[in-house]
Amino acid sequence: MTSAPLADAGRARHALLTMWTIRRFEEAVDDLFARGLMHGTMHLSIGQEASATGACMALRSDDAITSTHRGHGHCIGKGADLTRMMAELLAKETGYCRGRGGSMHIADVATGNLGANGIVAGGIPIATGAALAYQLRGEDRVVACFFGDGAANEGAFHEAVNLAAIWKLPVVFICENNKYGMSFSTEKSMAVAHVADRASAYGIPGVTVDGNDVEAVHAAVADAVSRARSGAGPTLVENVTYRWKGHSKSDKNLYRTKEEIAEWRALDPIVRFEAVVQERGLLDEAAVQAVRDEAMQAMREAVRAANAAPDADPSDLLDAVFAPA
């Protein structure tokens, strides 16, 4: 491993705060939905926070990401503004997409977030193309491309990973294997044990890591990022994790057992990392509690500010169909 774990107090705190912020944001979204205060649909990544956090901490601020329908964590990890995210979900004019996109289309080009995506595997060729742009311009920037295990069975995955491999593009393919593409388990959807096994088909390295261990994710992605930045090409990193909540709000959890969900809840990435940082003496209990409080406060402030913002305005719905020349 070329990278140290998240061993200093500052980075450990940042990792913990990011994970708590994702958790609190998504719990608030879940709650607003349940109370009928939020419209549309949403896909929660509760339980998967270590993947987004560890990966994004391995990136520079001028690196880019592409995200998925389950993308709140990636946006927050890459530095998105919570209030603008919440405003988007609450259908406000001040949201990232002015109410045109919603949960599945949050992007923040300024922070290098090239966009969540409502199409499974839709972002993988786009990440590859952004990496091609960086390579063509001689820039040493890297793209981290998030996708799920379901996307690894789409043709877009195979075409894009192959292109990135033959051109040695600076992209890191990060598969968040949460065991299910909606209801279909990876045991049923793949004849290989790991998504990362597929890397060899494209002549690139593949690595499977414990996706609920933020340090393991960070280390694997940091290695892949430095490989990409050096010009050696893409890596496929598979973060094995689990979503606690259903696929979306229609999910009745008919395809998995309560016991299985309970087993994974016991592997909570946040609880695990809190124990690690306290064991190492990086943060004491009071410092950990301060992180939790900060995340809670940030979420509450985002909900408050977003609720106070003006609703998205239907008077100029055609203005963003085409970019002005």
């Binding site: 060729p125 786009i126 193309g129 952004a130 091609l132 043709g155």
Partner: peptide
């Protein structure tokens, strides 16, 4: 700049989308 590609229409159109988003 005159870049030959494999037979991957979805991949290369997507790569163009990404490159365009990234300023090309």
């Amino acid at each position: 700049r005159i870049r030959d590609t494999p037979i991957s229409e979805l991949g290369i159109v997507g790569a163009a989308v990404g490159a365009a988003l990234a300023g090309m």
